[in-house]
Design a protein around this nucleic acid. Structure first.
Lengths: 222, 222
DNA sequence: GTCTATATGGCGATAGAC
DNA sequence: GTCTATCGCCATATAGAC
């Protein structure tokens, strides 16, 4: 999705009434994330969100035109975050895969976000869901980029025989999604990052311990 | 779940008012499956279910005590079905894995059921969801049985080095779940059965084309 | 076995006071 | 920028007529 808006603002520390408003908005976004994660979008209520943030429904709707706008804001808000960890558009295929494993490890520390995407992506498979288009595009975009990462690895002769970039991409995404369900149902049963790494070691030859700071990669990508 | 009740009834063709009632019940179950699949349990309404089956809400509630009871009935109803295709408790490890691939192929012809489990298992990760316990038990049970299947294959020396029965089970289930999300979002993008088979060929040595009739297997299992 | 009527309560959204 | 009040709608569930 387009999130140039946020990134282009120099984000100087805001002051006065401006600051208050900004804080309130973020507090609402945090509460909305929790509620949508626990109950989904359709069953999550503005009333519950408002109550968690300590204000009235009307107060919340002053900051977000309606419930759909709030959902979109929540999704945009969290999207920036994954991109900080995964250099998804990088040409360094190994770095992309390492980033995904790191993302899985990081996700284990923020169950609320995992719950959010797990719940919403399932809900969003319905064509009439307000986030349906978002998820179709998101999966398409992610799949294309991971496929590109595998293609780069293939060119270096690091893809095992019998595996294709396309299948690698579909498999990697399916594993991330599927592991999350099992993890949410019983956290003691699965180490998401470990499972991911083990599986991908089976069909790609990567040095998992290469230094994985992402900031450096990001300069070179779009 | 306990579904001895149904199976123990000799199931002679019911007659008279009895037959009518039974048909109505099944019609309600079908409609409920659709609605819960499309909207989830929490957002799916008795009103919508009643309308699809052509009766009033009160009429539906005559057959099912309340909404939760209807959900449980839907889940029980569909569970018997997968077991017809997968000899999950069989000692023939290869037959179990073949069954799972066949199940994936079969599922592609009943998107409604795929949608149901995809939506409900995500919803059901919440501890307060009425189907939470069901899904915790279901995953636990399935994982244990698939692990057993892989253990049998390992004993025959057909598990590739580096793969463990435990990881095989977690991976297989994660792949099935994750592929379903991508498939529901865009059916042209993924062939679920093919992807599954390809992946598992990478870490287990199986003749996928062995005759896979399940009826014969089922006799031997519990 | 199915209906209508109704009780009870949660929901999203708006209007207007402060 | 936040509130109270209110509207209109939909939800589950029950009571009782037919």
């Amino acid at each position: 999705m387009t999130n140039t808006r946020q990134t282009m603002t120099p984000r100087r520390a805001p002051r006065g009434e401006y600051a208050k408003s900004r804080e309130t908005r973020e507090a609402i976004l945090d509460a909305a994330l929790e509620v949508f994660a626990e109950a989904g979008y359709r069953s999550g209520s503005l009333r519950e969100i408002a109550s968690r943030v300590g204000m009235s429904e009307a107060g919340v709707l002053h900051h977000f035109r309606n419930k759909v706008a709030l959902l979109e804001a929540v999704l945009e808000h969290r999207d920036d975050n994954s991109r900080l960890l995964v250099p998804i558009e990088s040409d360094d295929g190994a770095a992309v895969l390492r980033g995904l494993v790191q993302l899985a490890a990081h996700n284990a520390s923020i169950p609320g976000v995992v719950e959010l995407y797990c719940t919403l992506s399932a809900e969003g498979t319905s064509p009439d869901h307000p986030a349906h288009g978002y998820f179709v595009r998101r999966y398409e975009y992610t799949r294309a980029n991971i496929e590109r990462a595998f293609t780069a690895l293939e060119a270096d002769g690091r893809l095992r025989a019998g595996m294709t970039p396309r299948r690698g991409a579909v498999t990697m995404i399916a594993m991330m999604d599927g592991l999350q369900v099992q993890w949410l149902l019983d956290r003691s049963v699965v180490d998401m990052a470990q499972e991911l790494r083990d599986l991908f070691s089976a069909f790609v030859d990567i040095d998992w311990d290469a230094q994985g700071s992402v900031a450096s990669e990001e300069e070179g990508s779009a």
